[in-house]
Design a protein around this nucleic acid. Structure first.
Length: 258
DNA sequence: ATGGCAACGTTTCGTTGA
């Protein structure tokens, strides 16, 4: 089974890239973030034409997440946590894989900048309640795959110039500690299980030729509950998508399961 | 070569993102 996750920065602008990606890589699930549209304007029929169904938690202008899939799913859940600002940042489905029930979550964590505003406080509170949800799931011994834009740079090797980012909402110690706490509660950063090399990024800013200079960030992640981490065969970053005309500033990450 | 983002909504600029 193949599961990909991609912050597309507008599903309507990126539709051709998405279709190209589905045809080429044939993931069974594609988790989207920042679709930037209401659910009713999601391109359901264009995606259905190439054999995929879609579940959508949309929002006008900003945020919005979705799951595109070609497997039998159940238990669709918009909003796995209570979002105090009612922003569309999570969607989950269950799938039966090798006789075990696995919950697949597409997540778009708040950015949190600037750090001296309520946007940062919102990120902190949001992450705390997401952490609580994941701890509860862990206690229940549930099997989870969480893919998405976490807006967290986990470590120094995940950013081109760490000293420039020390006080940024993506890299503050306080934020990185929450990420570590989640891992300590029984989750695996799947990419780091298969690749220890620095400078592997999933995002490059549109500005200042960041992609050409490889000035990027690793902020898109696949976390797996440790009770299914043995299923991880490979995790790749599909950097090619950043070279297309009018790309998203993020590229997909792709999880291949045994 | 010596500069330089993009998407949205309502516009033709302000806001947001990372």
């Amino acid at each position: 089974m193949i599961i990909s996750s991609w912050n597309v920065n507008s599903v309507r602008v990126r539709l051709n890239h998405i279709i190209q990606y589905l045809k080429k890589n044939k993931p069974n699930f594609l988790l989207l973030q920042e679709i930037k549209t209401e659910s009713k304007n999601f391109p359901f029929s264009e995606i259905k034409q190439i054999g995929y169904d879609s579940e959508v938690n949309g929002q006008k202008s900003y945020n919005g997440v979705a799951i595109i899939y070609n497997k039998k799913i159940s238990n669709i859940n918009l909003n796995v946590i209570n979002d105090e600002q009612k922003q569309s940042r999570t969607i989950a489905v269950d799938v039966n894989y090798k006789n075990q029930l696995i919950k697949i979550i597409s997540v778009y964590v708040p950015n949190g900048n600037p750090v001296d505003t309520d946007k940062y406080q919102y990120k902190l509170k949001w992450l705390k309640s997401f952490e609580t949800f994941l701890i509860n799931q862990s206690k229940l011994k549930n099997k989870l795959i969480i893919g998405g834009d976490f807006n967290i740079i986990p470590n120094e090797e995940d950013v081109y110039n760490p000293e420039d980012w020390e006080n940024d909402a993506l890299f503050r110690i306080e934020i990185r500690k929450i990420f570590r706490k989640i891992l300590n509660e029984g989750y695996e950063d799947s990419f780091r299980l298969v690749n220890k090399e620095p400078n592997n990024y999933t995002f490059w800013d549109y500005q200042q030729r960041s992609f050409d200079k490889n000035k990027g960030l690793r902020i898109d992640h696949f976390l797996l509950s440790k009770n299914i981490s043995h299923l991880i065969k490979d995790v790749t970053i599909d950097k090619f998508l950043r070279t297309l005309e009018r790309p998203s500033d993020h590229v997909p990450i792709r999880l291949i399961l045994n």
